[in-house]
Write a protein that binds this DNA or RNA. Sequence first.
RNA 1: GGCGCUAUCGUCUAACGGUUAGGACGGAGCCCUCUCAAGGCUUAAAUACGGGUUCGAUUCCCGUUAGCGCUACCA
Length: 479
Amino acid sequence: MLRVRFAPSPTGFLHIGSARTFIFNWLYARRNGGTMILRIDDTDIERNTQASLDSIVEGLNWLDLGWDEQYRQSERLALHKQVAEAIFQKGWAYHDFTPAETEEGEKPRLGAAWLFHAGMRELSHEESDRRAAAGEPFVLRYRVPRDIVEDVRFTDGVYGEQSKSTADIEDFALLRSDGTPTYHLASCADDADLRISHIIRGQDHLTNTFKHILIFRAAEVAAPEFAHLPLLVAPDGTKLSKRRHGPVVSVTTYRDAGFLPDAFINFLCLLGWSPKDDREKMSRQDLIDAFSFEGINKSNAVVNFTETDPFDPKAVWLNSQYIHAMPLEELAQKLLPVVCASGFSVDPSKMLAIAPLIQERIKLLGDVVTVADFFLVDELPGYDTAELIPQKGDLATALKVLERAREILAKTEFNHQSLEEALRAEAGRLGIKAGQMFQPIRVAVCGRKNAPPLFETMAVLGRDTCLRRIDQAIQKLQS
RNA sequence: GGCGCUAUCGUCUAACGGUUAGGACGGAGCCCUCUCAAGGCUUAAAUACGGGUUCGAUUCCCGUUAGCGCUACCA
């Protein structure tokens, strides 16, 4: 039975790199009929917060991929200690009574000294037990073999054959001096207990894997398969972090800007993975069908954001592709809450009428507020009167156009075809180009030069609004 | 410092010894057009460096350089 897990530690919001790890695990599970497990790795009591846990679950829910089983490490401490005890009993670990380093005094510990604290490995059972019983604090450390040097090996699903000499692996901690398990111990104990078959995680764990293999060996359980994912990095090449890069690394930032979950998932999948053909836009099912470790790259992938542009252009483009392909009813329905959240009020039927006019003009759902604002307000915000004057025209032309337009709009049937025919004919009569005719009207009605097609726009706006705005424009020109 | 990993256009990537090194985003230009978009077409842009192996290296090996990761009683 194939079982994979996503194991975030609740010490911050859901990071886009974490989201990608979740997605790849999920894809692998779904591709192979396996089980997806969410495990909250909350062994670091100091840094865990409920807010962070909530934010992670919120982010995962938005992705809407789901999972099959859920666990929390802090509820499994007894298991961790039991595994630690067993490892200790078999002689694979020892008590280290060396006091914790007092921060700052961190010296580079040259030579082999960094591997372990002198004297602690050789403590006799009696003395070790006596000091522990006397209440002297200790760290339980893994006893990495020192008399014989061995290469620890495994085959990574992405990186291939890996090996590291035990001479380069330090005696790492299993239990802290307060008795709580470290990440390495808790993670391995749970992976074994939950019968995880494949560990798919960030490449930052690649070298930790040797320690984990040592733990599995001491616990006398078979190690799972491993596959490490290349990291997501910032344009400067450094690992994405909240501290350095701000909210652009949070999944909720993408959600709030109006990314569609499918587009976001699609984008993340294309970072460090390729279907090996030219496909870019891929549905969940496409991704499931195409996913394999073969397609995963080995080098880190840059998420291309800047100070002025928080989102990778490719993510934005992909999102626009999803918006363009979306049925209008669905688009209108998704736009409605976005519009309301910005303080506008619009009824669903009007939103549905607006949707086709902006579908190809928005890349993110949030763009609706800037692209369709003039549909949503009664009074147009102020605009530069000079924009009413068409190319190669003057104030008089603009006035003439608007006055004629008012007359025509007052009597013409208010639909695309009639409006266009009437206004084009009028342009001919005035001896000006259609574009010169339409610009003053567009600016008067929309409040700006760049807007959706004029006639459809006016039809949605309605006769009263259009006439009122044209009157206002005429007044502006006359004053 | 030690150990590990990585290296193709600005970015994401394809090419698993033989290609004019392909695609996408972004950029530039043109077309379409009532503006803006969308769409179509065209274009600039890459194998980090140095050695091997080979008839032939983006591809295999070694070195250099650079980047990243681990080196905590964080995960």
